[in-house]
């Protein structure tokens, strides 16, 4: 009895001691700044406040009403939404196609193909963005050289505001599609073979089996992949930072890039905090929609 008691009592203290270092780090360096960020977004913290806190004023929702009128912010939102709405479906389609090819029973050398297709995922985003800056070069770039073989004239990928964002979408698909490909391939692998056999017995062809077996069975995985991709894409930053600095003519200015510029270049910290809060709210939308539609993403 006394022994059991001792263990439970000690267990309580030990549990706290084990969890405390991580919880302290997270509380001090994550929760505290997050809470402060929301408060900061109600102030006019700027370069003068950096010098002396006496220049700090509470402006209520002032930063948020300013956001609504800010042409630059609206451009950033439009660009980011373009990136998300055009980029995410294309990216998932490429991942899905690649996963189906990898999964096909006829396919040989699967590990080699998978490793090659997955390789860009592990690379450093900044480094490959630097590489793609040259790949997109209108005269000496690889992309235009390949397109010339197909008879497509030279495109000024990063210099023309109409194609700069599509170029960034293209680069991002190349960088990321392997990630979803691996998740979708694992999903395909977990579909029981007997479902396909039953469909075959019922006379279902390849297309019918895809529509009535593969797609429904893969629905939770597809929802998970979609939610994660949308959330990730909303945070677009390094690609435009490295390849275009948000140009030409603000065509690739993203929300996070604007937050970085406002906060860390121009020291409009209060205003930048409002941008960060707005971004956070936007990032909640995909998970909430998925939940409303009735399919919870597999992992939080």
């Amino acid at each position: 009895m006394s022994r059991v008691r001792r263990t439970t009592l000690a267990g309580g203290a030990v549990g706290w001691l084990f969890a405390a270092p991580a919880l302290t780090a997270i509380a001090v360096f994550f929760f505290l700044p997050v809470a402060a960020s929301i408060l900061l977004s109600f102030t006019d913290f700027d370069v003068y406040a950096v010098a002396s806190r006496s220049n700090l004023r509470v402006v209520g929702l002032g930063n948020y009403t300013r956001l609504a009128d800010d042409a630059l912010f609206r451009t950033a939102v439009r660009n980011t939404l373009y990136f998300v709405v055009v980029g995410a479906p294309l990216s998932i389609a490429v991942s899905f196609g690649a996963a189906l090819l990898l999964h096909a029973p006829l396919t040989r050398w699967k590990p080699a193909f998978r490793a090659a297709l997955f390789l860009p995922v592990v690379t450093t985003l900044v480094a490959v963005a630097v590489v793609w800056r040259y790949v997109f070069h209108p005269r000496s770039g690889l992309l235009n050289a390949l397109l010339a073989l197909l008879g497509v004239g030279p495109v000024d990928w990063l210099g023309d505001p109409r194609v700069a964002m599509p170029a960034i979408v293209l680069m991002t698909i190349w960088k990321n599609f392997g990630f979803n490909m691996v998740i979708l391939a694992a999903g395909l692998l977990s579909i029981p073979e007997r479902l396909y056999e039953a469909a075959r017995v019922d006379g279902a062809g390849v297309a019918a089996r895809f529509l009535h077996v593969t797609l429904p069975a893969l629905r939770p995985t597809l929802v998970f992949v979609t939610v994660m991709t949308l959330i990730g894409d909303l945070q677009l930053f390094a690609e435009p930072y490295v390849m275009t600095q948000g140009g030409p003519a603000h065509a690739t200015l993203s929300v996070v890039l604007l937050m970085y510029l406002e906060g860390f270049r121009w020291w409009n910290m209060g205003y930048a905090a409002a941008i960060a809060v707005a971004l956070f709210l936007a990032m909640l939308v995909p998970s909430l929609v998925a939940r409303a539609v009735g399919t919870r993403p597999e992992v939080a």
Binding site: P33, M259, A276, F280
Partner: peptide, 9 residues
């Protein structure tokens, strides 16, 4: 909660 949210403070 994304990491960027707390970055400024």
């Amino acid at each position: 909660i994304p990491g960027q949210l707390g970055m400024l403070p």
